[in-house]
Design a protein around this nucleic acid. Structure first.
Lengths: 245, 245
DNA sequence: CGGTCATTTGAGAAAGCTCAAAAAGTGTGG
DNA sequence: CCACACTTTTTGAGCTTTCTCAAATGACCG
């Protein structure tokens, strides 16, 4: 896990990278930082100008509203770039926290700038992956806006499994969730209490299984159907990209 | 309205563009298509590989869920790029429809590719604007997930005004809304009936005014406060961009 | 002027929330 | 390894917000 670039590994699932491109990405992950579970990487309103590649562990980003309620915007998994949301802004729009122990590789905006200048194909690929993420976020909008509590819980579970599959490749039917039901509620716009009831329902109906904080998919097809879930990360279209340099 | 590139105009609110860059953007909007209100530009699952710049009028994109309910993902206003969401995908994840009569300028993915190759600064700027849009979408997620019906309606109104201000520059306290209350409901995750009641409430409390489908902001400060609204489009940070070529 | 579509209002129903308390885990220092 | 403190999960009961259904009113178009 300590060798090579996680970002390169992630991107190479979508495209064969040239040596040149590999070299450019390796330069991004030269530093490394270990963070304990619950570490705040960036606080809302911080002027953080750094970016990170997540190398291991999970993170989430959230906002806290006026009445104290919290909305989790996004979970981050290995290979994700963290902090792009502050790229356009002076101040971070969200708080970013580790959800499990994690390793992150900080890098400067300048590095991203270099990629746009010297590696147009990589820049376009990162842009494309980002678009896929936006589509996934739109899916979550629809989930929260227009589906039942049960469907929302099913949906977030599907998404977590789908996104972890990109890096792990292949089989993945059981997963250690470092998330509390409170977290799941804040991600789906529900209360922890109601998440609990919905999870029990999913277990009772044989869609998932649980023990401790392990969750297993029993009938993924039915789960995805109930959730209206579509996997946006499985493959992305790279046909339009410029040639590698 | 027929002269020059709308995209260039939009982008130049954030950055002074070079002649070179202007020329590149002008090439994008060479064609033009008029569309009547209600025209479907792209259907969910279409294999559309074209992109568009919106030159005049409003559009929305939405999905229809299994039970027939609809979620509007996004509204598009002049200067926006349309179709980026299908960039990463073989098939369009959403349906895109004109909400008023509109003029769109279709262009090929290849043109975007050219920009990544030849105009890294423009590519990075487009990337950055896209990030701002993602942040705005995250705000909407929080709005739908964690705020009351009244706050959600207030929020969507704030967003519509804020985004129209970018292009119109300066004062804008009254706007002709080509949206039905059904549309607003589908954007905020509410029913049309409930949107109606919330709007009445906002009018009664002196936050907004209405006549026909014109909406005016009476007390924008209070409206934004109730909505938890933050304008993500007013200015964006361009300090990290590579030099113009 | 009739027909269609959008808005408005009312009343009852349902999904999900709040509060409260018990049960089950988890981690820490002794 | 145990005991205590703390967090998380689970369950129950009543309450609110928002939805659904229905019907009336109003606006626009040909």
């Amino acid at each position: 896990m300590n060798l090579g670039s996680c970002l390169a590994e992630r991107l190479s699932h979508y495209l064969d990278l040239t040596d040149n491109e590999h070299a450019a990405l390796d330069e991004i992950e030269v530093q490394e930082r270990e963070c304990k579970r619950g570490t705040i990487i960036r606080r809302e309103q911080d002027r953080g100008r750094e970016l990170f590649v997540l190398r291991s562990g999970w993170l989430q980003s959230h906002v806290v509203l006026g009445d104290g309620s919290r909305q989790i915007m996004r979970f981050f998994f290995p290979g994700d770039i963290i902090g792009l949301s502050s790229l356009a802004l002076d101040h971070s729009p969200e708080t970013i926290v580790t959800v499990s122990d994690a390793t992150i590789a900080p890098f400067n905006r300048q590095k991203l700038c270099d990629i746009f200048e010297s590696h147009p194909r990589l820049a376009a690929l990162i842009f494309t992956v980002t678009m896929a993420e936006r589509v996934a976020m739109a899916d979550r909008l629809a989930s929260i806006g227009r589906t039942s509590a049960r469907a929302r819980v099913a949906s977030i579970l599907c998404e977590i499994f789908a996104r972890n599959r990109v890096m792990l490749k292949g089989e993945l039917s059981e997963l250690q969730l470092p998330l509390t039901q409170e977290d799941l509620g804040d991600a789906t716009g529900l209360t922890a209490v109601h998440v609990n009831r919905m999870m029990r329902g999913l277990v009772d109906d044989g869609l998932i299984a649980r023990s401790g904080n392990k969750v297993g998919l029993i009938d993924e097809g039915r789960l995805a159907a109930e959730a209206n879930f579509i996997d946006r990360y499985a493959k992305i279209d790279t046909s339009w990209l410029p040639p590698a340099r």
